[in-house]
């Protein structure tokens, strides 16, 4: 009946998801609809908010050390992807259905190979939920390394963001050359730490001030789920 089983199925290949994966290993499956991962930090061209990063888990501390050796958050992207290597991570995979079972969840996904039904004891959603988003920003990166952005209302979509970006470009760029426009919004969330409703655990990776904190929170949640 099921094509695959796991203890925890994680929605979103976010940085927090990578933390859960670090704790749960092959017992976890990550399902991501996008072709990339960690987009809420790396794709969003986010800069670290706040000064103090103090991971508490062994994995978080180790990743923090590796990140600290690089000169920008963007330069840490490969280090983040390395956290996903060897894991059961399915990119470009769409969730078609989630149904509660007596002892867990039945999740139907669809990727390039087709449909697949996965049984999971636990379900964790690490994506940002629309209702908790209080603000959005579309960042751009300049040749100098400077990051600036346009602030948007919570309900703005990418089309609206691009329209506004085109409009505000002269003011935003002020003669400087942009080297990249973000692939994802830089989000501000009202609430993002672990919540549970409908039996689904929610931990919105994008809500954390920096990827190490998101990863660390993921590791802690993963350890809890694995009963450690």
């Amino acid at each position: 009946m099921f094509d695959e089983r796991c203890e925890v199925l994680i929605l979103g290949a976010t940085v927090a998801a990578a933390g859960i994966l670090a704790a749960a290993g092959q017992k976890a499956v990550i399902v991501e609809s996008r072709p990339d991962a960690g987009y809420e930090f790396f794709g969003a061209l986010r800069t670290v908010r706040g000064k103090h990063i103090s991971p508490v888990t062994e994995q978080g501390i180790a990743l923090h050390k590796r990140f600290a050796a690089r000169d920008s958050l963007r330069a840490c992207t490969p280090l983040f992807y390395a956290c996903l290597q060897g894991g059961r991570v399915y990119l470009s995979a769409q969730v078609l259905d989630i149904s509660r079972q007596e002892d867990g969840f039945a999740v139907t996904i669809c990727d390039a190979s087709g449909e697949r039904r996965i049984f999971a004891q636990h379900l964790v959603d690490t994506r940002a939920e629309a209702r908790y988003i209080t603000a959005k920003r579309l960042n751009v990166l300049f040749m100098s390394g400077r990051v600036a952005g346009i602030d948007l209302p919570a309900e703005a979509d990418m089309t609206e963001a691009r329209r506004q970006l085109a409009e505000k470009l002269p003011e935003l760029a002020a003669g400087e050359e942009i080297v990249a426009v973000a692939d994802e919004f830089d989000l501000t969330l009202a609430d993002f730490r672990t919540l549970e409703y409908d039996g689904i655990l929610r931990i919105a990776s994008a809500g954390y001030a920096d990827p190490i904190s998101a990863f660390d929170a993921g590791v802690l949640l993963g350890e809890e789920l694995m009963g450690r």
Partner: peptide, 19 residues
């Protein structure tokens, strides 16, 4: 056409990039 292989290849490719 193989979703899982494709995902692993994307991740491996990006993990081995240099800054």
């Amino acid at each position: 056409r193989d979703g899982q292989a494709m995902s692993a290849a994307i991740i491996d490719g990006r993990a081995t990039q240099r800054p």
